[in-house]
């Protein structure tokens, strides 16, 4: 078995497009779920808003790249407000129900036949990233990286922008969560009524958090749209949201670096199990009677799922969490 290849693949997967895309979307989700206690189960819809906002503007409507970015951001703000108006006054579970439904509505709308001319149906949209790669400073005659971990010039350019955004948002989250604004947000997560009784407009804070996290999620949508060169509606299904929650909890919710490390680890682990299984089958370590190469795709999710179950059993606070803090819930 080629362990070198297995590990470089794992690292490339964690640091690559998928990793940075998940890191951004999970940072947004961390503001919702980790800090404000908003059970947003429709983060994939915010990502889709970013990805399709950009792709539709440029590819279908022929607008400039930057206008597409603004439309993607604006779309996520509008979505957050639309979701928030009816649900933020109600109990937390209503937001969960409404967001998961809204995310499905958006996905089905994007892939619908009747809107094929605008959103491209199940084929999705392509050819919107030209302007972005024209600005690519990395010559594309070689690979970039160290020690076997290498990326193409296009990927390197997307990653440069993506990880810069991750760094920017990490600083933003750190500053915000150490400010009085963040204190109110965390207090709302603990008990809304107590915060109301202290004269804070809980509704306004929850709306601000929903919008902010949604906008950051949309930037994740830009990254995945640019990195993959095409957008398809079905890649923004509910399972994306659940994977984002997995990454967030893996890293530790309500921690600045929780979602970032969680996203990297999530994709690294998926790649690692995938490669280990494939190589083990190819080298005859696992016989065909147990598992064939075509089953690896499912089995890797089972194994990663099992790992997460064990993690929640033995380290429920995630990697960065504080077990003492988590134990306070038991009271």
């Amino acid at each position: 078995m080629d362990w070198g290849a297995i590990f470089t693949n794992a690292i490339e997967s964690g640091l690559g497009i998928d990793g940075v895309y998940f890191a951004l979307a999970a940072i947004g989700l961390n503001i919702h779920f980790g800090y404000a206690g908003l059970l947003n189960f429709g983060q994939s819809a915010f990502v889709a808003m970013g990805a399709y906002g950009l792709a539709t503007s440029v590819s279908t409507w022929g607008l400039p790249f930057w206008v597409g970015i603004l439309i993607g951001l604006g779309g996520s703000v509008v979505l957050a407000i639309l979701l928030g108006i009816p649900t933020l006054r109600l109990r937390a579970d209503y937001l969960a129900i409404v967001t998961i439904a809204a995310a499905e509505i958006i996905r089905l709308m994007l892939r619908s036949v009747s809107l094929k001319d605008t959103f491209g149906g199940t084929d999705g949209l392509q050819q919107y990233s030209g302007a972005f790669f024209e600005a690519n400073p990395y010559p594309d005659d070689r690979q970039y990286g160290v020690g076997g971990v290498e990326f193409s010039s296009r990927d390197t350019w997307v990653m440069t922008v993506g990880w810069s955004l991750v760094a920017l948002f990490c600083v933003l989250v750190w500053v915000l969560m150490n400010s009085p604004w963040g204190r109110v947000l965390k207090a709302i997560r603990e008990d809304e009524d107590a915060v109301r009784s202290l004269g804070k407009n809980v509704y306004a804070y929850k709306m601000q958090a929903l919008v902010l996290g949604g906008v950051i999620g949309a930037t994740g949508g830009f990254v995945v749209a640019l990195g993959q060169g095409s957008v398809t509606a079905d890649s923004f299904g509910s399972e994306t949201t659940f994977f984002l929650y997995t990454a967030l909890i893996l890293g530790g919710a309500a921690r600045v670096f929780g979602p970032v490390v969680g996203a990297i680890l999530f994709w690294s682990l998926l790649s690692l199990t995938d490669n280990v299984l494939r190589q083990a089958i190819a080298n005859g370590h696992i016989s065909d009677s147990i598992m064939t190469g075509t089953q690896v795709g499912q089995v890797r999710f089972m194994l990663v799922g099992l790992g997460l179950v064990l993690m929640l059993a033995f380290r429920p606070q995630g990697i960065f969490g504080d077990k003492k803090e988590l134990a306070l819930d038991a009271r």
Binding site: P180, W181, R183, E190, D191, K200, L328, D329
Partner: peptide, 23 residues
């Protein structure tokens, strides 16, 4: 309604009104 996962001091600071940093 003590806010369990906030420190005692943060609980207190939350009570102050007219905080500029809350915007």
């Amino acid at each position: 309604k003590a806010l369990s996962k906030l420190s005692v001091l943060d609980n207190m600071r939350l009570g102050a009104t007219g905080q500029r940093g809350e915007a």
